[in-house]
Design a protein around this nucleic acid. Structure first.
Length: 299
DNA sequence: TCCATGCGCGCTC
DNA sequence: GAGCGCGCACTGG
């Protein structure tokens, strides 16, 4: 009986469902494997993950999860090699690029307040916002993925109720606090930063110099150099932001480009240094942010 | 082919 | 009863 990979919710197995062991999870169609953390392939993407304390670099904040990729460990679970983008890791990268929802299953082996005390619990759908390489203290690189809770239509209406001061009813029975924290994190972004950066550069991409012309006018995107929020906690200020076209935004966020200390653009795939970053006298770039971004993508 | 964020038993405290 | 160490087990990729 083969596993049928399904993205999104599985009928009869809503968030909050509990399972005694991995076999039951596999049988439910929630996850392909009875031992691996990541369910998926590089071609299709990842449909589910299990958090069960297997990697110490994991961080579980409820609606925000920092999930460590697979591989590079010895049989004794010591990190003995760098992780690479293949297998399950490549599946998670694919899910990130395609915006696919990932089912998150928490196990008792994970020592966070969101983990069940016994067995496993299906927590719901998450999306992978970004990924990067983390340099560990021991010198090995591991992949990390930032997942945020997707929620659902009812969950959003609950949020609105909460804001309006109505009695919140969390009929899904889980995690009102984290859901609220996710909302506040979104609201915290300062529009003035976006406005200033776009205005200073006249919507021209700081990497390639093009401006997207739409019927409604010129368009550009403001990218953060050091990520906002958990775990990078970069500041929402102009010095940590770039004005980019959508293509170069994706390339920069995913490590195809990084910057040198003298603000030259490096093509990570070719290993060549391209043109200097376009700058503006009012737009000072924080080198500490440039260095942190570079550290995600260089050894 | 062989590995992987498993499982369960039996031991110790 | 919890926590561990060890041996055996599974199945998709």
């Amino acid at each position: 009986m083969g596993y049928i990979r399904t993205f999104g919710e599985i009928d009869g197995h809503p968030p909050g469902s509990k399972y005694r062991n991995r076999r039951e999870i596999q049988h439910a169609g929630l996850h392909a494997h009875n031992q691996r953390g990541i369910s998926g392939t590089a071609r299709e993407g990842a449909d589910a993950i299990v958090l069960n304390g297997g990697y110490p670099d994991d961080q579980d904040e409820g609606d925000i999860i920092i999930y460590t990729g697979e591989g590079g460990q010895s049989a004794e679970k010591k990190q003995i090699a760098d992780q690479v983008i293949e297998g399950g890791n490549a599946a998670l990268v694919k899910s990130h690029l395609e915006g696919l929802p990932v089912r998150v299953i928490r196990g008792h082996g994970e020592k966070s307040k969101y983990a069940p005390r016994q067995g496993y619990e299906y927590s719901g759908l998450y999306r992978i916002q970004r990924y990067w390489f983390k340099k560990r203290e021991d010198g090995f690189q591991v992949l990390q993925f930032r997942l945020t809770f997707v929620g659902d239509a009812d969950g959003i209406s609950h949020l609105i109720q909460l804001d309006e001061g109505a009695t919140p009813e969390f009929e899904f029975g889980h995690r009102p606090v984290e859901r609220t924290s996710m909302l506040t994190e979104r609201l915290k972004r300062r529009l003035s930063v976006v406005r200033n950066v776009k205005e200073w550069h006249d919507n021209r991409c700081q990497i390639c110099g093009t401006t997207l012309m739409l019927p409604s006018g010129p368009a550009s995107q403001v990218a953060h150099i050091q990520g906002l929020g958990i775990p990078h906690n970069g500041p929402d200020i102009e010095a940590n932001a770039l004005c980019l076209c959508p293509n170069d935004h994706v390339l920069f966020d995913n490590g195809a480009y990084y910057l040198t200390d003298d603000l030259k653009v490096v093509d990570a795939i070719k290993g060549s240094t391209l043109r200097p970053l376009r700058t503006h006298k009012r737009h000072l770039i924080g080198l500490n942010f440039v260095r942190q971004h570079r550290s995600y993508w260089t050894k």
